[in-house]
Computed example of a mutant assay.
Amino acid sequence: MSKSTANFRLSDPIHFLALGFGSGLAPKAPGTFGTLAAIPLLLLMAPLTPSIYLLLLVLMSVAGIYICGKAAADVGVPDHGAIVWDEVVGLLITMFLIPLSWQSLLLGFLLFRFFDILKPWPISFFDKNCHGGLGIMLDDIVAGIVAWAIMMVIFY
């Protein structure tokens, strides 16, 4: 474990979730690995009714504000790259109401990563102006919404 991730503890449930079940500890592209870690959750959530899926999305987003903020405070880094719960939620937002296939998943994954990495406006606004757990979550929530909107146009 590198110095920058040495203060995370996978035995701590908050850190475990913030790190995307450990995927955020990947030495390269932790956000991409965090997004990949969302796929098993997506497969579990896909059969749910839209209202239950949406309820879980809201709960995971609100909980993520605390989870990401607490993990960041614990390690003393405002938006540590290993914190990837926001990517997990972002992909789940991207795939809301989208018929699940390997093609739709691949497209959703690529769109979400595109917007999460490049952060065009309005995503960049939230990235620069919101801080703490809310800031960590909000830019990825908006990236997920933008990717979702494109997915909706493509699939519907």
Rank of each mutant, 00 (worst) to 15 (best):
K3P: 14
S4Y: 13
S4M: 08
T5D: 14
T5W: 06
F8R: 11
F8A: 11
L10F: 07
S11M: 10
D12G: 02
I14P: 10
I14N: 12
H15E: 12
F16N: 11
A18V: 12
G22R: 14
K28F: 15
K28L: 12
K28G: 00
L44A: 15
L54K: 14
L55V: 11
L57C: 13
L57V: 11
V58H: 04
I65W: 08
Y66F: 15
A72M: 01
D74P: 02
G81R: 01
A82P: 04
I83L: 03
D86T: 04
V89W: 03
G90A: 08
L91V: 10
L91W: 03
L97R: 14
L97Y: 11
S101H: 01
Q103F: 04
G108R: 03
L110K: 05
L111K: 13
F114A: 09
F115S: 09
F115E: 09
I117F: 07
I117H: 05
K119T: 04
K128L: 12
N129E: 06
H131K: 15
G132Y: 14
G133Q: 07
L134Q: 12
L134N: 07
G135D: 07
G135Q: 09
I136L: 11
M137N: 02
M137R: 00
G144R: 04
I145M: 14
W148C: 02
W148K: 01
I150N: 04
M151Y: 01
V153R: 03
I154S: 01
F155L: 11
